[in-house]
């Protein structure tokens, strides 16, 4: 090959639109307020765009759909540097509840629903909700511990099958 090998002529670029996202499967693994909301917002946002949405709740993320826990989700006030609250203050009893209530007030003004209502809204809009079998076994839970809109308790294998052909988002 000569030193001045000619590169193949560039073919004119044809404008190809990237394929549209048709399905998202979102894993919710954290049980703090700031751990749960992003997943719910993304799932709801997907449905608003006509995108199929699955939510898979695992570990403490299950609190979002466990009847006894759903209303008690708090902001983490310790170990959360972005909050700008010194750890010693974050430890004060009542602090997580206070910070949570401040945040909830703000969210209400932005029309972001409380977790229970939000989860139901996603189910009503056609999103599917599942709980993780391994976590359910670990925390000794059963289907009746979950809010009604949780479709079923599924294994990781079931989850992958359900997520096939779409995007998976871990939160």
């Amino acid at each position: 090959m000569s030193a001045t090998a000619v590169l193949p002529e560039a073919t004119p670029e044809t404008a190809v639109e990237p394929p549209r996202i048709e399905k998202v499967s979102i894993i919710v693994s954290k049980g703090s307020l700031e751990g749960i909301y992003p997943a719910l917002i993304m799932a709801n946002g997907a449905r608003m765009e006509g995108i199929e949405a699955n939510l898979f709740f695992t570990f403490f993320g299950m609190d979002a759909v466990v009847k006894a826990k759903q209303g008690k989700i708090r902001v983490a006030t310790v170990g959360n540097p972005a909050l700008g609250l010194p750890t010693l203050l974050g430890m004060i009893p009542g602090m997580p509840a206070f910070v949570t209530s401040q945040m909830q007030k703000k969210m209400e003004t932005l029309d972001i629903p409380p977790i229970g209502e939000f989860v139901q809204m996603i189910a009503d809009s056609g999103g599917k909700l599942y709980a993780c079998k391994a976590s359910v076994d670990m925390f000794d839970l059963k289907q009746s511990d979950f809010v009604d809109c949780v479709d079923s308790i599924i294994t990781v294998g079931d989850f992958y099958e359900m997520a096939a052909g779409g995007e998976i988002i871990f939160t």
Partner: peptide
């Protein structure tokens, strides 16, 4: 969502 399957608000 039944009326507007591809996104009601939009």
């Amino acid at each position: 969502y039944k009326l507007f399957p591809k996104g009601p608000a939009k």
